[in-house]
Design a protein around this nucleic acid. Sequence first.
RNA 1: CGGAGCGUAGCGCAGCCUGGUAGCGCGUUUGGUUCGGGACCAAAAGGUCGAGGGUUCAAUUCCCUCCGCUCCGACCA
Length: 568
Amino acid sequence: MRWSRTLITTLRDDPQEAEIASHKLMVRAGLIRKLSGGLYTFMPFGVRALHKVAQIVREEMNRAGAQEILMPALQPAEMWERSGRLATMGPGMFRLKDRVERMMVLGPTHEEVTTEMMCNEVSSYRQLPCTVYQIQTKFRDEIRPRFGLMRAKEFIMKDAYSFDVSYEAADASYQAMYDAYVRIFKRCGLLARPVEADTGDIGGKWSHEFMVLADSGEDGVIDCPACGYAANQERAERKAGPTSTPTQDGTLEEVATPNVRTIEQLMAFFKCPGDLFLKTLIYVADGKPVAVLVPGDRELNEPKFKRLLGVKKLELADDATIQSVTGAPVGFAGPVGLTIPLYADQALKDSVGRISGANKADTHLKNVSLARDAKVLAFEDLVMVGSGDSCPRCGKPLQIKRGIEVGHVFKLGTKYSESFDAKFLSPEGQRELMVMGCYGIGVTRTLQAVVEQNHDADGICWPISVAPFVVTLLNLDTKDAAVCAVVDQLEKELQDAGVDVFVDDREDRPGVKFKDADLIGCPIRVVVGSKGLAKGGVEIKLRTSKDVAIVPVDQAVADIVGRVKKFV
RNA sequence: CGGAGCGUAGCGCAGCCUGGUAGCGCGUUUGGUUCGGGACCAAAAGGUCGAGGGUUCAAUUCCCUCCGCUCCGACCA
């Protein structure tokens, strides 16, 4: 492929639309172009890299025994009613009607379609286990598309679904996918870390996310360097540590606190540490108000609370609800005298001598003892785990990092087999539910994660496995016949040797070509110029190294092939 | 959806406050000089100033509405 014949335009300036390095670079290097928010066109170089990622995924899926299929992206909404997800995924799905007014959706994922298909195809235990997968475009009406390919409305996902005769067998399928994921991300040149995760709307009991550590990641990752415990911040647990000792214990006492509402203001007012306050949050869970207490210096972890309540929808109460539930304006809620269900973080168990709102305007209570003064339904781990908290396994301090979720593996159990009555005949002649697992990789997101993790100040540094081209061949003197002859020869020989080569044959000055070569970032750069030839050959340089080797023309291809082999 | 910001040439931006019909850099085209880390000179093409409405003799500029984009929160591969 030659630059002069390729649709690739590089940009000197960072695009205004991009915030993070990988997004800027992908646009600058001419890999993607935005159509609209969350919708991107893959340009020739972008597709090449994308196909390489997809191919790695495909090879490893096949190796793990999964079978590739391809399901429609357009699906009848009725299937989603059956699983109950039309309600839960609701606005996240693109919906449309066909010409006879039938409700359709653009598939955000394919549990329903797969389960229905397997239900029809599988009748005997002899056909199991079976894992199918596809690499296909998914549609999600994201509330906020972000960071280019990171969170898009239309994206390419590899989704796999396993079907087994039992939970034990399903565990083996899960493990096979887990292992395949480890290999996939490694082959893509990514440092990805499996962490325990929440299951969200997909459902199921247990899941692992594969996180690419990056400061620009959207998720918090809790990590224990001591024992290896790792979890998504949403799910992460902690061992409740010691709290400040209350200055005194005693009887409840009202204190006038005009306009003192926030914890910061309270700390200043009472002159004591934040964890001695009871932060009282009023939520609305599936339409009903509930209250939750966390130490004043902590944040509530909403997913954990939602899981504890077992509700579909959980949101902070509005001012009017707070007023009617507590009888006080925002900022003065407290546990004492509340009539709605009340929950509390485990760290507050046996807490005494605390300060909370009095459910009365401009008033707080001192010396609150939860056991004595309030009715707490349950003490659970409900706070957002942060840096320095104690590991739930080993008690050592935890660290917090940022991560990009590139893959997610779920143990689904029988959630979908029940909805679709997906059963098989056991050896004993019984009809039994298939036990499922589902496994996703964001292929387009993975591609961008590769860039996020592999770049420097000058541009992308592609791992050879997913680079659009392995070699960029720079023709520095396009008007010099001898140089052009060498370029032509090397291009042909490299192609014959099976090495992807891209030739920069533009009539530009050398500096422009060097800059663009660094920006696009193919792993091996070969320079052919009259000066180099006079010095004895062509120059070979790795994108990630400063060393330049001058190699005689007749040895160049062998040298390059040798370097390619070293990469793999 | 809540909060913040931005829409002016393919890209990055200025102009707007204090109305008078648009400018800079990059890129593109042509000619010339250059030629090993984003050259220089000259000429040229390229703009319904996001859309609609209002105020005004006159609106890119002031006012209103809408749309789009980006960032921070809840969702997720």
